[in-house]
Design a protein around this nucleic acid. Sequence first.
RNA 1: UCCCCGGUAGCUCAGUCGGUAGAGCGGGUGGCUGUUAACCACUUGGUCGGCGGUUCGAGUCCGUCCCGGGGAGCCA
Length: 434
Amino acid sequence: MNAPWVYISSVGQYTGQTVCIKGWLYNKRSSGKIHFLQLRDGTGFIQGVMAKNEVDEATFSAADRITQESSLMVTGLVREDKRAPSGYELSLVSLEPVQHTTDYPITPKEHGTAFLMENRHLWLRSSKQRALHRLRNMAEKAVVDFFFDNNFIRTDTPILTATAAEGTSNLFATQYYDLGTAYLAQTGQLYLEAAIFSHGLVYNFGPTFRAEKSKTRRHLSEFWMVEAEEAYYDNDDNIALQERLVQYMIGRCLEGCREELKVLERDTAKLEEAVNAPFARTTYDDAVNLLQGMGNPIQMGDDIGGDEETAISRHFGKPVFVMNYPKKIKAFYMKEDPQNPERVKCADLIASEGYGEIIGGSQREEDYDKLLERMQQFDIPVEPYRWYVDLRKYGSVPHSGFGLGIERTVSWIAGISHVREAVLFPRMLYRIYP
RNA sequence: UCCCCGGUAGCUCAGUCGGUAGAGCGGGUGGCUGUUAACCACUUGGUCGGCGGUUCGAGUCCGUCCCGGGGAGCCA
């Protein structure tokens, strides 16, 4: 049998022809003299039908014995069939097991998340997980395309660093030769700030590490972040850029991942709204007043927590930028608001539908003396940051930047309840296996 | 670190007032030519998270430890 090997995704081009599919058995149903084999090959799913009176006895009993998640190669005639979800079926003429699986732990029935996380290496094969990671693939492609098309240069920043950007706690430490302790980067921002003086507009995309002892649906110890840094952009330019990026990402996913969003049972109405209408904008002060008006006990000067974010996002009904936070609760490098020195020129983007903060960004302090003053206020030693403050001496310019969390953004687009599914093998407070 | 919830068959769970350990799914056997988490019959399957205590008797009550889940703080 010399049937050509084809992928399920392109099987429609072979209607009426006999083809070979190489893949795995997803599930099987049988009615004694007819077998229904649910096949997948990485590109899609198709049902193979084998009737007893159409094949020899050995072939029929091979299909009878084949088990869930066995690898196999089959040949069959491609047929259009209205009863098939994809519109196509395979009339099987032969079946060759590649490896016979026994006792596959994940059945087509319900499982708890603890069990599924323990079997993450197998869970990835499930259709919802497949859809999710294909959606992530599209979101990442959108990021790269967006920045490329907008004249940004991808300048990936180091993962091993000597210093902390935002305080020394919450960092993973490791021994670095004879040079002392190195830390896994929790941001590449400071390095990107150096790169704008070479390229003007830059971004990075890579893993970032935070040893926060957070156990919530929004936290990972290792997550992927897109960070951009823009010379001569003020806070408003920065926000406008973020809005365009997020809308582009959602638009590409809506357009290119219709099947995946259907598998994920995502109600896409809110996403379509987000693409077509401007995001809301508010200030920290207005948000606090709003929350207080809703009976929230938040005080002026407090940070905005998870519950407050949800309340704000519900109020606006769409993604919302919260701008100009108090200086005291934000990082040292953020630029003071000239209108109000107690506030900084920053913005967090809170996704809609309760998905929380997906972007943190700000205009940076570009003045040498002001920056040193702020570092002093935050008790940050200058010496390890000598190179960073140096940037304010040699052609300093106003500039801004932001970081977007990929898993949070993908979770929102996918409509899933926990970021841990949005990354292949999540690293969390109590989980590093598998 | 703190608060809340949970741990019973391979998986998902039920287990009343402290009185013989249960179901569905999975596995096995048989049946079924259009199944869609197929179905039907039979069958298999237990260190009730560990240790200690109360009791004639503990899955159930008490103490303690371990493991997991969600949240707070912090953040993307």
